[in-house]
């Protein structure tokens, strides 16, 4: 069953198209991820789906509720954890949750019970009466995730849930996300530009770049689509070698990136001698060669022609007026 369906969802600003005719659907109970660099349109998509922005064109439904015509019902059925922290730092953790529950019309007894349950889920039971400004970054994030769950949402949106957090906290948050997906049956829509995060958490991933979805599939299928093994090599005359190899039938795909040649193949270890043979016949000296299982990085490189780090470096230079990031979470 589809829980989110979008149909040519588009958001235009005067000088750029942030989201460009995006159509996809998310199944009930799955963890679905949008993977893409900063400025790809991930946050804009979330803001449209959560009724904070009006789409310029196209439509979307959450459950059976239209995000434009039936905002109130959409709002009742979703939980959102924004990219920027959205807590009242002058209130305690417990108060933040309590006020949230009141806005979602949860009764007094239910409120208390639920606050305890979600705090337990994110291991913050003993921090309940501490004012949020004294929380660490990771604790704030956990509290926000707990708050997103307070009102039993059918879908929880997580916008870059572990941005700017240390490795240990990230692991912990991943654990909580998995746990609530399993224990509460919450469908999760998350965005990330971390490959490992998408790899670890998501059942299905959509790769998004410059407002367009390039492909949507399970992680398994995405990795298989570029070959079972990836061979990376450096050599003396890389362009000549690429031209020589590009028409070989046993190579699924081939790309030069960062003065490395990357090949997607089956049974990579058997192909290494073959490659060495070919390059020797072309008088090309191979400096290094390795074979490994494909990662999401390779998938991303395959579909966008760049690694996500290139994107981020480029985007840091270009200004991105709509996507401001706040201090402390960079």
């Amino acid at each position: 069953m589809n829980i989110i369906t979008t149909n040519n969802l588009t958001k235009k600003y005067t000088d750029l198209i942030a989201v460009d005719n995006v159509s996809f659907s998310v199944l009930k109970g799955e963890i679905f991820g949008f993977l893409g660099p900063n400025g790809a349109g991930k946050t804009t998509t979330i803001k449209m789906l959560t009724t904070l922005l009006n789409p310029s064109k196209g439509s979307a439904k959450i459950l059976d509720f239209d995000i434009i015509k039936d905002r109130d019902n959409v709002r009742k059925n979703i939980g959102v954890v924004f990219q920027e922290p959205a807590l009242d730092t002058e209130l305690t953790g417990g108060e933040n949750l309590d006020y949230h529950a009141r806005m979602y019309a949860i009764g007094r007894d239910k409120r208390k019970e639920r606050i305890n349950a979600v705090l337990k889920l994110v291991d913050l039971e003993d921090k309940r009466d501490i004012i949020v400004k004294n929380y660490s970054g990771g604790m704030k994030r956990r509290l926000e995730i707990a708050r997103g769950l307070m009102h039993y949402p059918n879908v929880l949106f997580l916008d870059e849930p572990t941005l700017g957090l240390d490795a240990q906290t990230r692991r912990a948050i991943w654990k909580y996300v998995k746990k609530m997906n399993k224990e509460e049956g919450t469908t999760i829509f998350l965005t990330t530009h971390y490959m490992d995060e998408a790899d670890y958490l998501c059942d299905r991933v959509g790769i998004i770049d410059r407002g367009k979805i390039l492909i949507i599939d399970t992680i398994e299928n995405l990795k298989n689509s570029i070959g079972n093994d990836v061979i990376t090599l450096t050599c003396s005359n890389i362009n000549t070698l690429e031209k020589r190899l590009v028409n070989e039938k046993w190579i699924h795909n081939i790309k030069i990136h960062d003065s490395k040649l990357t090949l997607g193949v089956e049974k990579g270890d058997e192909k290494i001698p073959l490659i060495i043979e070919i390059s020797q016949s072309e008088k090309i000296k191979i400096k290094s060669i390795s074979v490994r299982k494909p990662t999401l990085d390779d998938v991303f490189l395959h579909f966008t022609g760049k690694t996500i780090r290139d994107h981020d470096n480029k985007n840091n230079v270009e200004s991105q007026p709509r996507f401001r990031m706040r201090g402390g979470r960079k």
């Binding site: 009724t51 904070l52 959102v80 924004f82 959205a86 730092t89 706040r326």
Partner: peptide, 14 residues
């Protein structure tokens, strides 16, 4: 607005 809390309020069904 600056500290993001406004989003939390605007996304609530009120």
């Amino acid at each position: 607005k600056q500290f993001g809390f406004l989003q939390e309020v605007l996304v609530a069904p009120i």
